[in-house]
Write a protein that binds this DNA or RNA. Structure first.
Lengths: 201, 201, 201, 201
DNA sequence: CATGAATGAGCATTCATTCAT
DNA sequence: AATGAATGAATGCTCATTCAT
C-alpha cells in the first residue's frame, strides 16, 4: 500500500515536472504560472501544491532533473571516448547534440537558470555554492588528463573550461546563430577551434 | 523654455532608467515592478507612466541604453587598437572590463535579454531579426581583417565570433567563475586561448 | 458530488449577479467596480473573477438575466390575455408593473443598456443585431393579430411598437413623471391612449 | 481688457464644450476623460480644469448647452405653427428632425443624461427637481390649448406629454428602429398616431 | 489522493486634479 | 491664460497558496 502510494506520488511528480518543462518551453518562465502548468498536466493547481512545497520547490526539482538528464547524456559519451582529445570532442559534440535533440528541455533549463532566484533573491546564474556541477567537473578532468598525458599544452584548466562551456551555450543563447549554422556544423567547428586552443606549442 | 522642459523630461527619463537598472540588478526582472522602480527613483508609479508609454517601453529603452553604453565602451577600445591581433585583444579585454566595471549595468542587461519577450511572446534571446548588433559586427570585422592580412588562419568567422562572445559572457553568467578568478586574469587568459585558436598553422 | 458543486457554483453566480444589480441600482454603472460588487456580496473581488471571465462577462450575464426576467413577467400576462385589445392592455400594464415591482432590476437594466458597449465600443442601445427581443416581437405579434382580426386599424406595426415601448419606458426614464403619477394611473391612461391610437376609423 | 479676457474665456469654454460633445459622441461617456477631451480640443487637460471647476461642472455646462440648443430648434418650429394640431405636428417633427440633423449633439445629450449623476449620486434621468424643461412645458401648453379649443379630447395632459416624448426619444434610443425606418417616415407616422390619440370622440 | 472554492497581495495602468512656472 | 509635471486613488485582473470536502 505504502509502496503503491509512493509509486503514484512519484508518477504524479514526474507528470507535473514534464508539464512544467513543456510550459517553460512554450511560454517562458514569466508566464509559467501554476495554472498554466496544471492545464498542461490536466490536473488542478491544488494538486501541484500538494506534491510540491511551493512553486520554487517545483522549479528546483525540475531544474535538478534537467541538469541530471543533460549530464547523463553528455557523460555517457565522454566515458565511452578514449583519450583526452577524443573525450573533448565527445564533450563538445555531446553538449550541442543534447541541445538540438532536446530543445524543449534545454530551453526550460535556460529559462529556470536565468529566472529563478534563491530565497535571498540571488539568481541561480550568480550562485557560487559548493555543489559541484558534474559536467563542469568532467570537462576539467578531461583537460587535466590531456595536460598530464602531454597531449594538451599549458593553460588554466578552469578558465579553459569556462571558455569551452560559454562557447557551447552560445548556440542556445544566440538566436541569430541558429539561423546561420546547423548544430552539427557548429559543433564540428567548435571542436577544431578548441583543439587548436588546447594544443599549445 | 522649450529647451528647459525637454531638459527636465530627459533628466527624469534618465533617472527612471537608472532606477530601473538598479532594480533589475537588485531584485531581478521578475520582481521589477513599476512600484519597485518608482520606490528606488523616489517618485510615484504614475510618473513613470507619464514618461514612458508602458513597462515594455521602459524596458526596451533601458535595454537600448545598456547595449549602446557597452558597445561604445568596447568599440572605443577596438577602434584605438592597431592590427587584428591587438584589436582582438582590445575586444576581449574591453568586453570583460565593462562587465566588471559596470556590474549593475551588465546584470540588468542580462536580466532584460533573458526575460523580456516580444508581443508574440518570443524571448529576446531567441530573436533572429535583421537588426545588427554593433559588437558582433565589430568582432566579425576584426576576424575578417586578420584573415585578409594573413595574420589569422582559416576558420568560419561567424562561428569563431560566437565562440569568443560565449566565452566572454560566461564570466557574468557563471557565478562560480567569479569566485575563482578576477576579471583581469580571466580576460588575459582568454586572449591567449583565442590567439592560439585564431592562428592556424 | 458533481451536482452539489454545480449547485454551489450556481448559487455563487446568482449571489454575485444580485450584488451587481444592487450595485448598479445604488451607485450606477460608472461606479460599479468589481470592488463595489464584491463589497455588497461580502466576498473578495478575486472570487468574482473566479466565477466570471471578466467584468464584461458579468455584465452581459446580468443583462441577460434581467431581460429574461422582465420578458417572462410580461409574457406571462400577455399569453394569459385573450384577444388583441386585452393582450395590448396586458402588455402595457405588465411592462409598467414590472418596473414598479422590481425597481432595482429595472434601474440596473437601464444602467447596463445605456452604459455597456461592445468590444468595438458600440453602445448596446445603438446596436442593431439580428438577435430578436422577445418583448418587441410579442408586441408586434399582438398588433398584427389586432389588424388581422379587424379590431385594429391600419398603421405601421413596427413604428407603433416603438411608440408604445417608448411611452412605457418613459416612466422609468423620466424622474419627474414618477413624482406626478403612480404607476397604475400611468399604465391605465397609457392603455386608453394607445387604444385610441390603434383603432383608426 | 477685461472684456477681451472674458471674450477669450468664453471662446475657450465653447471650444472645450464642443470638444466634449465630439468626445461623448465618438467614445461615449465612460471613456470621455479630460485627456480625451483635451486631445480633441488640442489643449492641455490643465486648461480644462482652469476653465471649469471640475469634470462635473463641464458636463453640466455641456448638457445645458445641448438642452438649450435642442429647445430652441424645436420651439422655433412650434411657435411658428398655428393652432394646436399644427403645433403638435411641429413639435414631433421638430424633435425628430433635431435628432437626425444633429446626431452628435443628441448622442452627447443622451450619454450625459444617462451617465451623469449629482453629488448625492442621483442619476440625472431620475432627478425630480423644480427646474422646468422648456420642451416639456411647451408640449403641455400645446395639449392644453388643444383641449381648451375643443380640438383635442379629454386626457391627462402630463401623461400624454410623457407618452409623446417617450415615443419620440425611442428613435434615438432604439438602434434597430433606425435600421428599419428613416426619421421622416417615423416622424410622419408618429404624427398620425398621436393625432388619433389626442382626438377622443 | 485530488479538487473546487476562496483569498490577500500584487500587478500595470488610467484618471481627475493640483501646482509651479 | 496656459502648460508640463506630478500625484494618490482607483481600476480590472492574475497569482500562489490554503482549506474543507
Amino acid at each position: 500500500m505504502d509502496e503503491k502510494q509512493t509509486f503514484i506520488t512519484e508518477a504524479r511528480r514526474t507528470q507535473i515536472v514534464n508539464a512544467a518543462i513543456m510550459t517553460l518551453d512554450e511560454i517562458g518562465y514569466i508566464h509559467t504560472s501554476m495554472a498554466q502548468i496544471a492545464k498542461r498536466a490536466e490536473i488542478s493547481t491544488a494538486l501541484i501544491s500538494y506534491h510540491f512545497r511551493d512553486k520554487n520547490d517545483l522549479m528546483d526539482y525540475t531544474l535538478m532533473k534537467l541538469v541530471t538528464d543533460m549530464s547523463n547524456y553528455v557523460l555517457d559519451r565522454t566515458k565511452a571516448a578514449l583519450g583526452p582529445s577524443d573525450k573533448l570532442r565527445a564533450y563538445i559534440e555531446g553538449s550541442i547534440a543534447y541541445q538540438s535533440d532536446n530543445p524543449s528541455c534545454h530551453i526550460a533549463l535556460v529559462e529556470i537558470v536565468f529566472h529563478a532566484r534563491t530565497a535571498d533573491n540571488v539568481p541561480y546564474y550568480k550562485m557560487n555554492d559548493d555543489e559541484e556541477d558534474p559536467l563542469e567537473s568532467e570537462l576539467q578532468r578531461i583537460l587535466l588528463l590531456g595536460q598530464k598525458q602531454k597531449e594538451f599544452g599549458d593553460f588554466d584548466v578552469r578558465i579553459m573550461t569556462a571558455a569551452i562551456r560559454g562557447a557551447i551555450d552560445e548556440y542556445t543563447l544566440n538566436g541569430k546563430l541558429k539561423g546561420y549554422v546547423d548544430s552539427q556544423s557548429y559543433s564540428a567547428e567548435l571542436v577544431k577551434v578548441f583543439n587548436r586552443a588546447v594544443r599549445c606549442v
